[in-house]
Structures are given as structure tokens and as C-alpha cells.
């Protein structure tokens, strides 16, 4: 029954779906690009950013990656453009732009 779920898509016949639509993998939310629904887009100004990391834990979609104690650019595949990060940033390093593109 164990199936590579990356082989399942909207064209898959019902006989080839997993029983009860079980998903045989972990961390599969990564594969689902929720960022496609975005109307507003946060833009990061790395110059103004002081790396205080207040924004990262506030993001409900884990879309502000941190590597070696420093934040990087947004994960636009999953950022839904809610604007929370722009609101919490004490240094005005995040601005919201209308539309999908940063």
C-alpha cells in the first residue's frame, strides 16, 4: 500500500489513491505551495534589518528561514502575505507590497 505520494496528483485514478487518502511521508506541507494564495507580499530590507529575530517566531507559516542565527529572505512559496512580520519588526525592515511579487 505504501506509495510515493509525489506520484499522486489531480490526474490519479481513484484506484491508485492511497487507502483513506493516507499520506506516506512526513513534512509534506512543504510540497503544497500555499504562497500561491497571496495578495500582499512582505519585502525585506536587509540593510535596515538588525537580525533581532522577532519576526521569525511570529510568522504563522514558518516562512522566515533562519540559518546560523541569522534570518534570510522570505520563503515566498509558503508566505501568505498576512503582514504580521511587518507589524512586529521594530526597525521598519519589512514593508508590505500589493500583489504576489516582492
Amino acid at each position: 500500500m505504501r506509495t510515493d505520494i509525489t506520484k499522486i496528483n489531480e490526474k490519479t485514478p481513484y484506484q491508485d489513491l492511497t487507502e483513506g487518502l493516507m499520506v506516506f511521508a512526513g513534512g509534506t506541507a512543504k510540497l503544497f505551495k500555499t504562497g500561491e494564495w497571496r495578495n500582499n507580499t512582505p519585502v525585506w530590507d536587509s540593510e535596515k534589518c538588525r537580525q533581532c529575530l522577532l519576526c521569525t517566531p511570529c510568522c504563522p507559516d514558518s516562512s522566515i528561514p533562519v540559518m546560523s542565527g541569522r534570518r534570510g529572505n522570505f520563503d515566498y512559496d509558503h508566505c501568505k502575505g498576512c503582514g504580521i512580520c511587518a507589524n512586529v519588526c521594530p526597525f521598519g525592515a519589512i514593508t508590505m507590497k500589493e500583489g504576489m511579487e516582492p
Binding site: 500500500m1 490519479t12 485514478p13 481513484y14 489513491l17 487518502l21 493516507m22 506516506f24 511521508a25
Partner: peptide, 25 residues
Amino acid sequence: EEYLLNPGKPVAVGPYAVTDYVMEA
């Protein structure tokens, strides 16, 4: 064959199904 408490073989049970999958399920 498949169950949640199966170390090394992660599985999600009862996931949300978008419209593309409900009829087939």
C-alpha cells in the same frame, strides 16, 4: 500494514482533501 506508531515510516491519517480528491476517495 500502515499505522501511526510505526517508527521510521511516517504517515498522516485523515488529511484534508481538496476538491480534486473527495469523489475518488
